[in-house]
Design a protein around this nucleic acid. Sequence first.
RNA 1: GCGCCUGUAGCUCAGUGGAUAGAGCGUCGGACUUCGAAUCCGUGCGUCGGAGGUUCGACUCCUCCCAGGCGCGCCA
Length: 576
Amino acid sequence: MIQITNRLLSNYYNLMHEAKVNIKDKIHDIISVSLQRAISEGKLPEADYPVIKVEYPRESKFGDYSTPIALESAKLIKRSPMEIGEILKSYISENSGLISEVDLAKPGFINIFTSLEYLKNNMLEIVKIREKYGRQQKDNPVKYNIEFVSANPTGPMNVVSARAAALGDTIANLIEANGDIAEREFYINDFGNQVNLLGRSVYARIKELKGEQSDFPEDGYHGEYIKDIAQWIIKNHSEELNKLENDDVKSAYAADKAIEYNVSGQKKDLEDFKVIFKTWFRESTLHNRGEVVKALETLEKNNHIYIEDGKKVFRSTVFGDDKDRVVVRDDGRPTYLMADIAYHFDKLERGYDQLIDIWGPDHHGYISRLSGAVQALCSKENIFRVLISQQVNLIMEGETVKMSKRLGNFSTMRELIDEVGVDVSRFFFIMRSMDSHLDFDLALAKKNSSENPVFYLQYAHARICSIFKEAEKRGIKIKPEISTLENLNNNEAIVLLKLLAKFPEEISDAAMTYEPHKISTFLLRLAQSYHRFYAEQRVLSDDESKTQTNLALCDAVRITIKNGLQILGVTAPESM
RNA sequence: GCGCCUGUAGCUCAGUGGAUAGAGCGUCGGACUUCGAAUCCGUGCGUCGGAGGUUCGACUCCUCCCAGGCGCGCCA
């Protein structure tokens, strides 16, 4: 126990010199050290204390942070919560800088107030480090691979893909801001039946356009865009096409060109959506390089495969699946699952610490079999995580239009970007928790008013920029260093300072839980508090010290909003 | 039948097992000779889908039920 105490104390002292750690973590460590000291000095008994939780009290009068540790350990050590709280409080109070007051409240909460001095210094830090505020650096970053969108290369992307794109990219941004490494990856299913079908559909349209007789496949792709592809091939690749022997070869060629056409279209749409993938991984390369066979052999070697009626079956029930899954058909062709297993095997071999996939809601049933395969191939626990991005309902004039490829009416991602713009689309897609079925209100998205949260947020940023322009016009030179505590001692400013200080822990929290909507919620609160500050406090005045303090605060808010928006992939305009 | 997601204010949604359940929109009423009124202030709004259970304490965890959505191929 004494060893533990020493270790915690040394952590504590390290933390005092480590500026990157957020306040919540610091407070956690202070409480932890206090507890250990109380134990080592005999004030509290040795015991297996519960994990120390640091939470935000509901009401500000209860402080900025609070811990229920006294409540939670009361039964364990047979002392009253208030008694324990009193002891811990005396140790927690013994620190300088961060904490201004420790309060013990009724049933046994220990409430902690951060000092205005600390918050002011944090504000000056923001103004100094600017775009780096909220970004952590780690000595040993975790390397993530995050695969998302991965839409079939058989046509344009729909609105569900757009949501996945916004979510995946934002989660990757969060991971990077949190000091880790995120590589964005897109998987192209350019193999198998659907490709064959795509080729035959396109080739049939080519024939039709040339006035020849065609037999359009019954279960083929009927969309209008297939005709566009046919037209494109006729215009650019007729010569090569004509050289080919028979219809089968020509269909295969058409499939190849159609995929090229579709993938480059998808890439363009995603780039316009500000999503840049590091890797575009083609399923066909797995088959060509023999990786599918290799993954199969690895599974076989570890006894995860058995043979039934000439088929090879993966024992996925061992990993919680409803039934075992066929991975190789009796004619020797691997199933889609087998290729997907090989794909994830490939990702594992590329040496990531963590694999994340974002899938649509229609694939949740697929999780157990694939994660089972990953477990079968990799000894590391929890290396693979699937996030399900729920469905999107487009609301037009109060009417819900369901987005599904199976229904005929699929709106494309391109239409959406053209219609409401990148900023608004991205924001709307991430502003709700990804578990919730999103109602995307098109009328609201197109409004340039306070009803639209994106504009509300951007307005706060533009408003601050405008103040700085005005300050420049008045010949005011910016000197944040002369800011005083006295000038910050008003409710509106204090609320802002506290929110600003929370930004790094909001990022870290959102990154670790893969919940980008926490950032949009936070930014809206910040913008709201800023508008309140603006309404109550005059920024520019004859009082130089007051003016400089206010400008520093405004600048810190502007920087934080901008950094937050950047993570969301939304612009922060200087004027609107 | 089985699995996943959802159910919180009129609407859209926040809400790590903690203190009196919150915000925006919408309603109604106020605030600009002054840094952007695309803003702010005030106002009302609840059997947290229902019933049990777990415990010091449940919107949160467990079980059952109800409602809505999605999925349950050797397709991809």
